[in-house]
Design a protein around this nucleic acid. Structure first.
Length: 214
DNA sequence: CACCAGGCAAGTA
DNA sequence: TACTTGCATGGT
């Protein structure tokens, strides 16, 4: 298992190269993006973030002062805008109350404890919490998403009914706790998922790694 | 037209 | 615990 995970990583990296995740300029932007991208294409998230930047609202203090309706209008392209406006505010209120909006202070908190805190925020689930921990705060936490789950099942490395924490444990027990590795590995799986033939959900002649098992 | 995208929470059984 | 539903835009 360990060897297979490492070998697969090297194979993916050779094929695709570094993915440059997370595509954001600041840790705060990563956190906002992590909430906006819930079940939503990244392209739409980029439009929403561009709107926030143009309105100079990519700041927890200013965003918090917007009405829910005003925030929802700005993030409209990301979809689920009413839900996500509330979720963003829930997170920002947590940030202010618990860390005075200071991400450096947040980063000093133990990973396990911080994860529990994030999960208590309504609107932040396991994937969003782990994305924030890994990509915004550089904590060695492996992110599991829909692509990762499909990929594991397809490889018969995991049964479909396994839970998020089961899949996460497989990666984290099979690999050394290396932030850069976890960052790149998850990004590569997503990249492969995007390339994978969507219609057939099978091996496909035009897909990369077509001579391998996807 | 249908289907999908870097989920989550609330309701139901 | 396991399943279902609502949330919504923009691309293919």
């Amino acid at each position: 298992m360990k060897q297979k995970l490492k070998k697969t990583y090297r194979k993916l990296y050779r094929h695709f190269g570094p993915q440059g995740w997370w595509p954001a300029r600041t840790p705060f932007e990563v956190m906002v993006g992590a909430i906006l991208t819930q079940n939503t294409s990244w392209q739409n998230v980029e439009r929403a973030i561009a709107n926030l930047k143009k309105a100079r609202m990519l700041s927890w203090r200013r965003m918090l002062r917007l009405s829910d309706a005003a925030l929802a209008r700005l993030i409209r392209p990301a979809g689920y805008y009413n839900v996500k406006a509330r979720r963003l505010k829930n997170f920002l209120r947590f940030l202010e109350a618990r860390y005075s909006g200071d991400l450096r202070q947040m980063k000093k908190t133990g990973t396990r404890e911080l994860r529990q805190e994030l999960l208590r925020v309504n609107g932040i689930g396991q994937e969003t919490a782990d994305s924030i921990l890994l990509y915004a705060l550089q904590k060695p936490v492996f992110v599991i998403d829909a692509y990762t789950r499909r990929w594991m099942v397809r490889h018969r490395l995991a049964a479909p009914q396994l839970l998020y924490e089961d899949l996460q444990r497989m990666f984290m027990e099979g690999l050394s706790p290396d932030t850069a590795l976890f960052n790149e590995y998850h990004a590569l799986i997503v990249r492969l998922g995007k390339e994978y033939c969507r219609k057939t959900r099978e091996r496909c002649a035009i897909c990369p790694l077509r001579d391998e098992k996807h």
